[in-house]
Design a protein around this nucleic acid. Sequence first.
DNA 1: ATGAAAGCGCTAACAG
DNA 2: CTGTTAGCGCTTTCAT
Lengths: 345, 345
Amino acid sequence: MKLKDLSELLNLSPTTVSRALNGYPEVSEATRRRVREAAETHGYRPNVRARSLATGRAMAIGHVIPLSSKHEMMNPVFTDFIAGAGEVYAAQGYDMLLTIVPDELQEQTYRDLRTNGSIDGLLVHSPKLAEQRIHLLNEIGIPYVVHGRASDCNEPYAWVDMNNTHAFRRATDLLLDLGHRRIALVNGLADMDFAIRRQAGFEEAFAARGLDTDPALIAGEEMTEMFGHEAARAFLAQPDPPTAFLVSSIITALGVRRAIGETGLRLGRDVSIVTHDDDLSYLQNRGDVPMFTATRSSVRDAGRHAARILIDMVENPAAGLRQALLEAELILGQSTGPRLQSAAE
Amino acid sequence: MKLKDLSELLNLSPTTVSRALNGYPEVSEATRRRVREAAETHGYRPNVRARSLATGRAMAIGHVIPLSSKHEMMNPVFTDFIAGAGEVYAAQGYDMLLTIVPDELQEQTYRDLRTNGSIDGLLVHSPKLAEQRIHLLNEIGIPYVVHGRASDCNEPYAWVDMNNTHAFRRATDLLLDLGHRRIALVNGLADMDFAIRRQAGFEEAFAARGLDTDPALIAGEEMTEMFGHEAARAFLAQPDPPTAFLVSSIITALGVRRAIGETGLRLGRDVSIVTHDDDLSYLQNRGDVPMFTATRSSVRDAGRHAARILIDMVENPAAGLRQALLEAELILGQSTGPRLQSAAE
DNA sequence: ATGAAAGCGCTAACAG
DNA sequence: CTGTTAGCGCTTTCAT
């Protein structure tokens, strides 16, 4: 069932049917209803490809996942973020195009997606500290939102991120308040932006009390269980082992817990863990002027927000960056709860 | 840069350029080379939408994720599977369309994707035991592959799955061999196909030794950390607590470990855990006759295989189901290693 | 071996 | 308010 069929069925021109279905005002309400009903009963679905060829809009948003290393993707945050975004896309009639790209093909991929005509906008995941992609995307001139940030970048860009620094500042404060002094930081890869911010928060907390962090208690790697295990084992084998762990990912935390178990130490008594993962606030930004904050929203919410911002940018290209940046208050203490109890002991 | 521009640049007709670029034999090698070079230097990319409108093929595969519950998506397996599939799609020139659908919109979504013209094939995730989707898809007549299985279904369908039953049979045997008798099973949701198969394997192992499983030591829920924590706490509080846990997911295992820690028990000494997740063999099936086995392949491999099978089905509709089913030998002992060490202790 | 022309299904001027 | 006429960028007969 295509537009033409439907129009013949109704003794109308394809144009009128199209207009009726797409809510153009110049159609009489009577015909509109007639058309709508016919479309409904015959299960007419417009062909997206044809439509986007005609309109020049793809009605699709691309999500690009860089595949530098195998385990990156296991990041549970990524998948919830996508779920939230997907929800919004579905509601707004957009498709979600997922592209997995090895690092070396990044540039080509972005360019292609654009000239291809397969997407209207882009969501960029896993930014590194030194992020070349932002410059590239600005040059290409395609609307995009970054999930995370690229601190080194001085060009303006839209992002949605959690307050990593603040979160880890608070988490570290928590452990310091509990009397811990030997705190190990089990972090993500050192060139990832979020990892750098988290470490900054960690160090900030120490510095604020005139204390020093011990570089021998800081590790950063791809956040696998294995890494958590090895890092924790190594830390615990040191002459002056940590009494607490601050861990960047739930997956890594699993390894840390295993290591603690193997040592015969009792979790929550001999040693504490604070796991950070998705239970932190997300912030939104489109530039410099306050737009809104989303405290206590989940990663999924962040995905929703990012999608909405992006669609807005796509549909109102004139507006450009709406210029908004605001750091949310982070309430770590109101975190998922159970995850923190072992530390609160 | 579009086809017409390129053709004018070369003093050729769009037709010839198209043929040259798409490898049609009737083009002279000389012009083909000339065209290829020009396309290369001018960075010409064919417009996918226009092409698929002309050819009737979408050059896209849809992945549909049912969103019955919030945490489902956190399944790390899903994301690695998608990464593998995405790799193959990219190599074969296919786009990957991700759709997140609430349960109640499933049917409509599948139908739409088809009549829409936005996809050529479908990958179905998270099958339940009683899976209505398979019947629907067979009726619609769109090529698809199921990630997982639907045991209740007696219609033929293509799937890629791990040998859940066998895996848990082996894992349980391992714990029984170590002398454990009070083994708790912390499983996924009871209506998920994989969870049912895993429990079957678990019970099989007990039955083979003339032992009974204790229903009071079996729990099945959405695989969150919280659930693992609560289930394990409850089990450990029983008069005759388990000495070992068999856990269906790495996330859930995190909660189980936390519970064990809180109890003051020492992991690997007082109590053991076997975590099952992605380190199991995957099988492929397209019907009834052996095709191949992939022992020890990762989830990512499974994604790759599924994608290849699907593309094959899409591109050779005549072939239909290639009729292949074979249970792979599962070698749990060769598993990722570290994850099993705490149990082997 | 190359080109002209028609058309994929839809939307968007431009009439009326 | 409705219809006519052109495309959108590509592929594909059918000629030559």
